[in-house]
Design a protein around this nucleic acid. Structure first.
Lengths: 140, 140
DNA sequence: GTTCGTTGTGTTATGCTATAACGTGTGGCA
DNA sequence: TGCCACACGTTATAGCATAACACAACGAAC
């Protein structure tokens, strides 16, 4: 069981499923994996996911309509730890062959996007960066 | 009518709708706008969109499940024009209040992502960058 | 010009993704 | 005790996307 404090039962169950998975999972796949634990409806999954994402310990992959556990949940690399290793914008490299996801973040990109936003007086709330392609293992 | 050459009738109709719209449109919204032109089924829209995106004259916004006409269809700023002003990865700033979308691209970010990919021998096929937030006009 | 492959089209049916709306239960706190 | 905030459970519905099949239009090759 994942022992992150202050998680409700449903949130823990969903996070566990995500943490154990090699690849991102859709909400409905999560639901299926949790039927034995008493889950019956999509909303139970979506509500847990919303909270996990809000806490920064799970992420949504927009280009896949799927979800992953945060790979950096215990780091706080950017100087301002918000309880769960909050860092700047996170980027994902997603292999379209094996489905594996690599999470990373990059100050230079953050700065660049922040600069663009500042120039235009645009106030960012959430930024999505996803690279789809082939990982080394899947290339010929 | 949009006069981009080599578009089929359906593709032109869809592109026209996108071009005239201030904000991104979902496939079903496009469908509704084209009922009078004979469209009856989602697939007619999706097929046209697929081609337009492939040609680089429309984009999909992953975080909205919606589509926009390319704002730079006639530019070729990065030195290699692929017929339709093909440039590097495109980024979008999306106002969550008014819905307006600002399309831009940034060499530094491109380079940075390319560098990351090269280091890991990851071969990118498509990159998504979307900033959601509030535009200047919508801030208080 | 006929044959054939490719591409676009039209249609029905279906599957996947996400949320609305309502009600219940529980724990903190004045 | 009464209230409030929040998690949870359930049903129904809305919104997004594609499978599978059939037909038409076009160009290239012969």
């Amino acid at each position: 069981m994942n022992t992150t404090p202050n998680l409700t039962k449903n949130q823990s169950l969903v996070l566990d499923v995500l943490t154990r998975s090699e690849a991102p999972l859709s909400a409905y796949t999560i639901l299926d994996k949790l039927r034995d634990s008493g889950f019956r409806a999509p909303l139970q999954v979506y509500r847990a996911l919303d909270k996990l994402i809000e806490m920064g310990i799970a992420h949504r992959l927009e280009s896949l309509n799927s979800f992953v556990a945060c790979a950096h949940a215990n780091e706080s690399c950017c100087g301002h730890a918000h309880g769960h290793g909050h860092h700047g914008t996170v980027a994902f490299a997603i292999c379209e062959s094996c489905g594996q996801v690599n999470e990373f973040h990059d100050h230079a990109i953050d700065d660049r996007l922040a600069g663009w936003a500042k120039e235009r007086k645009f106030k960012p709330s959430k930024t999505t960066i996803e690279i789809r392609g082939l990982c080394e293992a899947c290339m010929h």
